[in-house]
């Protein structure tokens, strides 16, 4: 009996230490990651696959594939999926808290300082320039995304629908997402039914 308690204690301690490590590693990654969430991937692989062997390379590939299909923030999904794999829900929670914590602190500090300076005439010019720069960055991001995502007329129509809906008709973007999801679902299910029917007809 005492042996069971002893090993249970070890398991708990090990899980706790894993959770703390998850928090620490994800906080470290988040603190220096500038750019999209997937940037975290190489570091996560190095830490969890190479250094500690807590995950396999296949696990990581699985994770990346699933992330693309999940809503929300990529970095949070990554920390949740990886954390869960390593230490269950507690691991997912610790990893996610790690991702959230450092940027939260940094932004709070910046926001606090900036609120006093937002109207400063010199800063106004800086912000205008940055906005124009971001405009160009997003343009390139759209072109990259478009090349990948737009493969046929169906996708092109949906993209156009989103573009015009928001820009000209001022339709709520969230509503468009829900509509697009339904449209995609219906279209593909109809298409699949047609394929099955035509194959059935050939027989």
């Amino acid at each position: 009996m005492s042996e069971d308690n002893h090993s249970q204690g070890e398991v708990d301690a090990s899980k706790l230490s894993r959770c703390l490590t998850l928090f620490r590693i994800f906080a470290g990654i988040s603190a220096v990651a500038l750019g999209g969430g997937l940037i975290m991937l190489p570091v996560a692989t190095r830490e969890f696959v190479d250094r500690r062997g807590w995950l396999t390379q296949d696990d990581m590939l699985d994770t990346v594939a699933i992330i693309q299909s999940l809503p929300g923030i990529i970095a949070v999904n990554m920390s949740s999926l990886i954390g869960f794999r390593i230490a269950g829900i507690a691991g997912a929670a610790c990893g996610t808290l790690g991702v959230i914590f450092p940027p939260f602190v940094v932004i709070l500090i910046i926001a606090y300082c900036l609120t006093n300076f937002l109207d400063h005439p010199y800063l106004a010019g800086v912000f205008l320039g940055v906005r124009a720069g971001v405009c160009a960055m997003i343009l390139f991001a759209v072109i990259r995304m478009g090349k990948q995502a737009i493969r046929g007329w169906f996708e092109a129509v949906l993209a156009l629908f989103g573009f015009i809906g928001v820009l000209v008709f001022d339709i709520n973007a969230a509503l468009l997402v829900v509509i697009a999801g339904c449209v995609g679902f219906c279209f593909q299910s109809i298409r699949q039914r047609l394929v099955i029917d035509s194959e059935g007809g050939k027989q």
Binding site: I138, A141, V142, M145, G146, A149, I150, F154, E155, A156, L158, A159, L160, F161, G162, F163, I164, G165, V166, A173, L176, V177, A180, G181, C182, V183, G184, F185, F187
Partner: peptide, 11 residues
């Protein structure tokens, strides 16, 4: 359906 729409939204 959502992925191509998002391209349009970001455009």
């Amino acid at each position: 359906g959502i992925r191509p729409l998002v391209v349009g939204l970001i455009a």
